[in-house]
Design a protein around this nucleic acid. Structure first.
Lengths: 236, 236
DNA sequence: TCCTGTGAATTCGTTCACAGCC
DNA sequence: GGCTGTGAACGAATTCACAGGA
């Protein structure tokens, strides 16, 4: 099983497929073709087939894929059959929202601890968990066997927190702080940056405005350059 | 100015460079080399030079880039010199956190309106804005000239909301709902999916565990496949 | 006949390496 | 001597297109 190296781009789509499959299963579908799954996942069917082929030959020619079986295989591949105790560092606006967000525990990411540096917040109850002081990090990470951490602290504290997390034995970090984190090679790092996403949208939005003025004859010279740059930017 | 088509991958890095540059400026730096900027932005220097070359020849050989000038150019390219009135649809956990998140307005994304379908929430004050009913969407989008919308509603309502946003004249959507949205070609769509990010981390986390057992001699056959799959996944 | 699985072709993105300018 | 700007080389990801099994 899992013979080869799955390309990163492919890995990052597996959760999308998984969600689409779960939805199809809820609608009573037993099998699904690559075209139907592609449609549900918002990609094209060649990608589906190629991506799934990295996991193994789980489809049946002339028929499609067995929905339940595929759910099982993708879950296994993603490591979702085990529980991953996770902690959230920082219980400001975003940290609180993340702590209350049901979507994590739903998929095996049990929030095992919340940390904050602000003594005023320590001891507060939040979604059945009591906020702990950041100085308890090392101890609790060990006790609860936490391997994944979500960083939701202000940018200026993010690197410090990351260093402490790494020292405490965390091996994966999901960073929400608007800062570039340096971590050792063996640590997996992903980032979610809210305002960067808006800035990317702004770029294409501006190009659309430019295109409109072109069509109104304001700056005809720029038409060609603009022509292909204003489409949808992701996920299609 | 802006002669050619900037590759999408490059566009999505510009906001990162911009933030690094602002930080450098705050530390009193006047010029920066591609190597120094690369370091601050967490990428390599060839990428910096190539990306910046798409914007024009803004550097000086033998010296580097003028920090302020580059900030100006990137901001202009990203469309950040204008104000983009933005709305948030859905004022649950996440919507509330986003409404209070300072990072948006900081960069010109003024939150101009909040919408919710729940009558109980309509009229609530949230970060100086009163929550409006979703039925006011069309009117307010026009009045406030909103072009960008942030979707933070439950997955099952996301497509409906997206359809209404598009009908109301929105042209960019940032989707936080864990659902695949279908929008017309002329609409820019980006998504932020919290639990997908964790699932991707889980994949690599699992591979690390597998690697450990390999090193303990449990499953020597899998070593080769695992070897290159457990590194950091993004931003380096 | 239908739909998967996959080599081959293509496109896109990254990195190298160095000419050219300060 | 130092650093940018960029063709050329390379590598990754996507798409095509079809052979082959159900």
């Amino acid at each position: 099983m899992s013979p080869r190296q799955i390309p990163e781009a492919s890995v990052s789509r597996l959760p999308v497929y998984l969600r689409a499959l779960v939805e199809l299963a809820e609608h009573g579908m037993n099998t699904v073709s690559s075209v139907a799954l592609a449609d549900a996942a918002g990609v094209n069917s060649a990608k589906i087939r190629k991506d799934l082929s990295y996991l193994g030959s789980y489809g049946t020619r002339g028929v499609g894929y067995d929905v339940e079986y595929l759910i099982h295989q993708i879950s296994r591949e993603l490591g979702l059959e085990q529980d991953w105790p996770t902690c959230i560092v920082g219980t400001g606006n975003l940290g609180q929202a993340l702590a209350r967000y049901g979507g994590f525990s739903e998929r095996g990411f049990r929030i095992a601890a919340l940390f904050d540096a602000d003594i005023g917040k320590v001891g507060t109850e939040l979604d059945d968990l009591s906020v702990m002081h950041i100085d308890d990090l090392e101890r609790v990470v060990k006790e609860e066997e936490i391997t994944i951490a979500i960083v939701a602290v202000p940018a200026r504290n993010a690197q410090d927190v990351a260093d402490r997390l790494v020292a405490a034995g965390i091996t994966s970090i999901l960073n929400f702080a608007p800062a570039v984190l340096q971590v050792p090679d063996h640590i997996s790092l992903r980032k979610v940056d809210l305002s960067i996403e808006l800035q990317i949208l702004s770029f294409y939005e501006q190009r659309k405005v430019a295109k409109e003025s072109v069509l109104r004859g304001t700056a005809r010279r720029r038409l060609e350059a603009v022509e292909r740059g204003s489409g949808t930017t992701t996920t299609r």
